Simulated assay, not measured.
Amino acid sequence: MTGPFRYTSPEPPQSATGEVADVYTQLAADFGIRNASTFVVLSASPPLLTATWALMRESLLAGRASRTGKELVAAGVSLANRCPFCATAHAVLLHATGDHRLAETVLRGDEPEDPGERGLLAWGKDMSGPPPFPAHEADEYVGTALAFHFINRVVSSLLSEQMLPGGVEKYRLVRSTAGRSLAATVRRDLTPGTSLPLLGTAGEPPAWAAEGPVGTAYGALRTAAHQGAGLLSTRDAAFVRESVAGWDGVTPLPLSAPLPERADRPGARLALLAARAPYRITDEDVAAWRVPPSTDHCLVHLVAFGAILAVERVEALLRTPAGELS
């Protein structure tokens, strides 16, 4: 396929079978975009694809918490992670909810006028502070935020910054029109848990979502993404883990920060960048690691390993609505 894919060549969605085809069907029905490149890029690994889709669906799309509120959190995460593709996508989805002025305010980098909306956007940018939502909605808001900490890193690593062909998403009229086309889908009430039968992995649910479909999906994603550690030597996997563990969960990787040499430790370099600065991944970084027999499947798993380490680091800094560490 041509288009937004920088380093992989996914199979055309119309030729998909099995759980991959089932995800595309659910995408069309529940998300309104059958061939969303955010998910197509993961199709080389059905367990990663199904778990990523399940976490996003069960946290952002389904449930009872405000869709506008969750889109604000997702936008805050995407802005903090310097992911223009995802930030624009959330602006489009805010247009779909009918919050047209808010969509453009957020995309410009301005603060919403409403204190509640301002608090949700700010929490998405830095999740170490007190959560601005009630405890009974924590699984949806936290799940949404962590889903996009993962998705942002996949997108920044493997896709171009253009959300639409020709970059036409830069025009407000295009964003608004795209959002209006999704309005009916965005405003539907979805049955929680529908994505879970597609999962190819399982894992322990987190404390912030010990019960329910969000926790199940998150556990599955952690299991699938950690499989990428097997693509690195024990030494390199430990190095990446230690580097991410020492990160504060917010501050971008300094340009002066030492990185593993591309020629000697390309896998460690790529995984670390995927975790802490995916927008800095270059063609040379990928080419240095991706030599035969590495495949699309290997590349998405290596990126996913770095991404899930970053997600877990952010998760470790979370506070519950009561103000205690989760």
Rank of each mutant, 00 (worst) to 15 (best):
T97H: 09
D99N: 10
D99R: 13
D99S: 15
D99V: 09
H100T: 15
R101I: 14
A103G: 09
A103E: 12
L107Q: 00
L107E: 07
D110S: 06
P112R: 07
D114N: 09
D114H: 01
P115V: 00
G116K: 01
E117L: 00
E117G: 02
E117T: 08
L120Q: 02
L120G: 06
L121G: 00
L121D: 05
L121Y: 00
L121W: 02
A122L: 12
A122R: 09
W123V: 07
G124S: 00
G124Y: 04
K125M: 12
G129N: 07
G129T: 10
G129I: 04
G129M: 10
P131T: 00
P131F: 12
P132E: 02
F133H: 00
F133N: 03
A135E: 01
H136E: 15
E137L: 15
A138F: 07
A138K: 00
D139W: 05
D139I: 09
E140M: 08
Y141V: 15
V142L: 02
G143A: 06
A145I: 05
F148R: 06
F148I: 03
H149F: 07
I151G: 03
N152D: 09
R153S: 09
V154T: 11
V155E: 02
S156V: 03
S156Y: 01
S156I: 04
L159I: 04
S160P: 00
S160D: 12
S160F: 01
S160T: 10
E161Q: 15
E161V: 11
E161T: 15
Q162I: 12
Q162P: 01
Q162E: 15
Q162R: 15
M163T: 08
M163S: 09
L164I: 05
L164D: 00
G167F: 03
E169I: 05
K170A: 13
R172Y: 10
L173C: 14
V174K: 08
R175K: 09
S176P: 10
S176C: 12
T177W: 12
A178D: 08
A178L: 14
A178K: 05
G179K: 08
S181V: 11
L182N: 06
A183E: 15
A184V: 13
V186T: 11
R187H: 14
R187L: 14
R187C: 03
D189N: 13
L190C: 12
L190Q: 14
P192K: 02
G193Y: 06
G193W: 03
T194K: 13
S195T: 14
S195P: 01
S195R: 12
L199A: 06
L199C: 05
G200K: 14
G200D: 11
G200S: 07
A202V: 11
A202N: 03
E204C: 09
P205M: 05
P205S: 07
P205K: 04
P206K: 07
A207P: 13
W208Y: 11
A209T: 05
